[in-house]
């Protein structure tokens, strides 16, 4: 069960990295999204996979009966998703502001755009 997931993680990492190495800032953010997805699946897989047995204690018992899924990676992944969500939203807003103020979305255009802006302010 874990082995196909390990390959999935590899594919997601590769795709994320590929996108992150593009010059377009928006693609970079998409790469980041894929990369963070890869990390989440990785943590989930590292906690071993158990199907169809939620770690919920039934009414009247102190512990869940029999073998259940590992709850800790789920909690960790949930936290990581939330944090990742916040950070990626911030990154998106930042890219949007950069596009508005500097008029550039390609990394190699940022420097010249900045200098142009400074020259305009000086003039």
């Amino acid at each position: 069960m874990e082995v196909p997931f390990a390959f999935l993680v590899g594919v997601l990492f590769a795709a994320g990295l590929y996108l992150m190495m593009q010059r377009n800032l928006l693609r970079f953010v998409f790469g980041l999204v894929l990369f963070s997805g890869a990390v989440n699946v990785l943590i989930f897989t590292a906690g071993r996979l158990t199907r169809g047995r939620p770690p919920i204690v039934p009414e009247g018992l102190a512990a869940p009966p029999g073998e259940v899924a590992n709850a800790l990676p789920q909690a960790v992944v949930l936290t990581a998703i939330v944090i990742g969500f916040g950070l990626i939203v911030f990154a998106l807003v930042l890219m949007l502001r950069v596009y508005e103020r500097l008029g550039a979305v390609e990394t190699q255009e940022l420097g010249p755009a900045l200098q142009r802006g400074a020259a305009e302010e000086d003039a």
Partner: peptide, 26 residues
């Protein structure tokens, strides 16, 4: 403008390092 341009580099590299850290923790 300068803050936004510097911010892009700071944010992107630090996000990448956080994800690497998270993968290592996993």
């Amino acid at each position: 403008r300068a803050q936004l341009e510097g911010g892009i580099k700071y944010v992107s590299v630090n996000l990448l390092s956080s994800l690497l850290l998270l993968a290592a923790i996993g």
